[in-house]
Design a protein around this nucleic acid. Sequence first.
DNA 1: CCTACCGATCGGTAGG
DNA 2: CCTACCGATCGGTAGG
Lengths: 217, 217
Amino acid sequence: MIDDPVISRTDRTRRAILEAAYTLFISQGYAATSMRQVAERAGLALGSIYNHFASKEDIFSSVLIDRHPYHQILPHLTEARGNTMDEFVRDAASRLVDELEKRPEFLNLMLIELVEFKGKHAPLLFEKIFPDIQILIGRMAVFQDDLRPIPLPMMIRAFIGMFFSYFLTGLLLKDLMPPAMQENSLETFVNIFLNGIKQPSQAENELSTHSSTPETL
Amino acid sequence: MIDDPVISRTDRTRRAILEAAYTLFISQGYAATSMRQVAERAGLALGSIYNHFASKEDIFSSVLIDRHPYHQILPHLTEARGNTMDEFVRDAASRLVDELEKRPEFLNLMLIELVEFKGKHAPLLFEKIFPDIQILIGRMAVFQDDLRPIPLPMMIRAFIGMFFSYFLTGLLLKDLMPPAMQENSLETFVNIFLNGIKQPSQAENELSTHSSTPETL
DNA sequence: CCTACCGATCGGTAGG
DNA sequence: CCTACCGATCGGTAGG
């Protein structure tokens, strides 16, 4: 064979199909995307797709597995650095939000899976991301002494949930929220989370602006 | 006229269409639901729908406005009671999660709006729910002295986000998560949130199990 | 990998 | 409010 044996012609075509389908799914949803659109974007005839995938849903589940947001986000989190709990959480939060803001589209994949497939591919997915979660838990364990007695997996779930929803609410409401609802909002979320998980003895350094009364409304 | 003038025949038909469309949209998504399915479920001929709605999207935006989850959830939150901050937040959290668990479907409406319409109806919606948010902010203001200096709207955003995502992650991963990720998980979320927003002086009562070391992994 | 086709179904409308 | 229809498009396949 003359061609690169590592990336065969078949592989390249298969990837082109997945790439095209990914782009179309996230911008239109699954049901609203036609196989003809996928074919055109991938540069082949409609019929040719079926040499690589058995059906439309087969394409979707393949896209889901190798483009799922968790898969892109968790590795960034496992790279988070910091000498203290505060630094680590801040670094992780800003990596997470950066990544989400850089590619807001790929959240759609997860939402499509939820709405149009009722989460039926979730087991497949969880299997894939579990190792990353284990790594993340391991990295957090270093700071055990600074933490309240909360199971680490629960904390990670709370962390991801909190900042995912920070991003989602911002996305949905960005032009509509009253200013008080968005000023320094990431910093505020980080502080709520940090105070929520840290041992009370450490909780005071720099995070609480002590005597001032809360802003009204 | 013999018929009840308050609920006219036209009104009843219109409602039947909205009810049918709502049920179908949340279970299949928007694009995957056909006007013929809506007509059949509402008990009329396809053509008749167009006497009440201009288009399929017109039906969707009408459904979105009067069935949106926020609209059903925020009133429950404004009814939350409690003499202390802790009681109030616990009551609100359990109301929110109860409501979500009672009707997990209606989250789909919001997700469909996000995926298939990219949030284009959000302004319309926000206008409708803003009064409820104001009420909620007012009720929280009673506890100002127990709170860290965080703008109240930010706190509400954090609250809703945290427990929405608690629900979502539970829904997606319920059978897959390691046990440590779900035991007493709502209670843990509530505690993280409470410790995150309370003044440190009050933060200690009952919430922190002081000396024990965190569970590993 | 393509051409040409299948039956089914789509959103929407005319005309009454 | 219904019947009957429009042109367009759907996922998928046969056959080469």
